[in-house]
Design a protein around this nucleic acid. Structure first.
Lengths: 190, 190
DNA sequence: TGTACATCAGTGAACGCGCGTTCACTGATGTAC
DNA sequence: TGTACATCAGTGAACGCGCGTTCACTGATGTAC
């Protein structure tokens, strides 16, 4: 039965949101169209009224996840605050709601150009923002600050990936703690 | 037709090696049993004379990949040498032959206990080795050296993951260079 | 405003395909005598 | 050593299943008059 245009638009949004969460949790290939539609409370046949293919949805879902991350990071005022939140056990344990880089980073290298382009833009934006937090005013971001921002981003993402992959909770906590120490106050490290 | 025991054992080895490479290149779900057997020059039916299931092979292939990495890292005498090799464009571009952490890190968190246990052991071993290189004598590895080793490992893995996921070769090179600087290899950028 | 019709979001069955796995079979290897 | 038989790695067809996608259909929404 037909639904109102507003309801249809809302359903589309919910499909993207559910897909974004499920893809991060289980990976692209492990989540089927029917699982996504089930999560939204619809049947799988209606999927193609909203998207041309599952790949189309994947590109949109990744973009959505990155936009959500960007917004979340944007609300962190200082570098220590951002680092602390990113390297928290809560973030490690929230795969479906957490950073897309950490959840799907390895898989993104294998995705199509649409997904990768959006991803690259996000990395660029995050690096610019981090460089601003690291190096002082955004208007005068030095090359050194930019390099440090890239290294910090790598360190954060790598720590969460490892902390999630490892089997032992104590080692996992230790990985996060080590990264917190290494990136504390941003300006210096050994 | 039957083959010699030696040939059968060799074929088994080649299946594991091919799977290890293909899984790293394309991910677990994207590589079928027939693709693996094709790569070895056999037909898919014979697969189950060697392995109980595809999952069994996956666990063994990951273990193999980690063992190869451990051996490779073990041949690096100093930390700068190790860092330089790990963060080289050559390593970034060799997904199938490169580090299993960087290629499958995100996926490993979603794998079974067999895969994850082997992975955890590998991380532990690498951290111990890195801590030795970082902190001086292996016999007196301080907690600080251990934390720094964990942070270095995170930084290396994260940098390669990001460098591979990003669409723009220049940004990719920059990510590797930034990580090299951050981890003090002393090497000049070219 | 009310009425008649067109639209289309959603349903659920069905399709084709590829996957992991099984199986009867082959024939060279391995072994018992 | 040679012969006869058993073993089993590898073959290729087949199975069941789940996936992405399609489609005829439903019926409430949207719209033209």
């Amino acid at each position: 039965m037909r639904v109102t245009k507003e309801k249809a638009a809302e359903n589309r949004e919910r499909i993207v949101a559910a897909a974004s969460k499920l893809f991060r949790e289980k990976g692209f290939d492990a989540v089927g169209v029917d699982a996504i539609m089930d999560a939204v409370g619809l049947t799988h046949g209606g999927f193609y009224r909203h998207f041309r293919s599952k790949d189309d949805l994947a590109a949109e879902a990744v973009a959505r996840g990155l936009a959500a991350s960007a917004e979340r990071q944007g609300s962190r005022e200082t570098l220590p605050e951002l680092v602390e939140a990113y390297l928290s056990p809560a973030h490690r344990d929230d795969v479906g709601g957490g950073c897309t880089l950490a959840a799907l980073g390895c898989d993104i290298a294998r995705q199509g150009s649409g997904v990768r382009r959006g991803f690259t833009e996000y990395v660029r934006a995050q690096v610019a923002r981090l460089a601003g937090l690291v190096g002082g005013k955004p208007s005068a971001v030095s090359e050194a600050a930019r390099l440090q921002a890239l290294a910090t981003l790598s360190g954060l993402v790598g720590a969460v990936v490892l902390a999630r992959a490892v089997d032992d909770p104590a080692l996992s906590d230790e990985i996060l703690a080590a990264a917190r120490v290494a990136h504390r106050t941003g300006a210096r490290r050994t």
